[in-house]
Write a protein that binds this DNA or RNA. Sequence first.
DNA 1: ACCTGGTCCCGGGCTCGGTTTT
DNA 2: AAAACCGAGCCCGGGACCAGGT
Length: 384
Amino acid sequence: MELEERIARRQATRDDDLLVDRRPLNPAVHLAEPVGRGTVLERLLDVFDPVFDRRLPPDAAVYGPKGVGKSAVVNALFARLNDQFGRRKQRLGTTTRAGTATDTVAFVHVDGYRTTSEFQFYHRLLDALVDESVPRRGVGTERLRERFVQQFASPTRKAVVAVDHLAGENSPSASELREWLAPVEEDVALVVVGRSVPDEWSSVTVHVPAYRHHALVDIVTERASQALTSNALRHGQARHVAEWASGDAHDALAAVSSAAELADDDDADRIRASDVDAGIDDVPDEGVHLGRVFALPENRRTVLSELLALDPTPPIDDAASAIADRSDLSAGTVKRFLYELAEHGVLERVETDATDGSGRRPSRPEPQFPTLPFRRFDGDARPE
DNA sequence: ACCTGGTCCCGGGCTCGGTTTT
DNA sequence: AAAACCGAGCCCGGGACCAGGT
């Protein structure tokens, strides 16, 4: 920790709040330096080894269960490698004459949650590769693709593109990505990141295993020490949460974050057992990652936060009209959003037992993500 | 048979960048 | 140079239709 940070923390603690800085506990935000992922990093560096000779590495699939730091590792590694081997961004349409510059390999990391169409795919890549702003509207997909392909007109220009969160409901599939990259397949390597290896994947694979217990305890302890006053989270509590999360850092951080907020709201001077229990309780089994919720379009997120304000959750129809009253969306649209979110696993429809009259029984939309951290962190610390 | 919940899908409007006309 | 126009993707609204329960 830097000296300045330490001093800032002292100042912040003067009002003796338990919670000094909640950001390190945000489960959707990765640390610049991944903890406990040494072997995975080595394995990835093996795959990317050709780049040290300025050659293009092979395609690769990075896979492993939820919350084990796949994105964290790829994100951190790509940032460093791009600093090392990527060239400064260049203007659209200008290419360096062959031989006047050394070969460069740009490393670009895009999020599949936010990249749902071919247009957006090229847009994000161009945004990372060129200096000037890339139009979001008013220009066709065809045109963007041409500009993208043009980036690789120079034989010295290459790129490694990582697409995160593959196999999400709206995320593109590996075969779609291959199609989109087909015009530049000689110059671009594709790295896919997801829960499993895509079908018919014939290139390299790198497995990211769940965190071991002690590694997860380290992560929780490290982040808690940055976020809270000292000893606010006891070691036994960290171990307890890590045990419960069984290797899933997202769930563990969500639980600790909620526990800290609850304790802080009560002006407690340390996290109590009841806070930990409540924090754990707020994290659904088999829920979705908060990062995925934060990646939703703004209107869906406002619908979600309005939904959380309704307690207890009413049946979908009532919920939709209540939310519509408080927003500028129509009840029909809100209803459709709720059904879509349930379809994508963000909400779960729970059948009510109300049997008023005839017709099919309605269901209530229950959140399938940690709601306390959602309320605290939505809007801030969103990448891109 | 009838009712209500749930799914699917498409037209139109919005916004923004590019292009043509004034 | 400014203004008017056009066309791109995206989002909302809502209708048509299907599913499940009495």
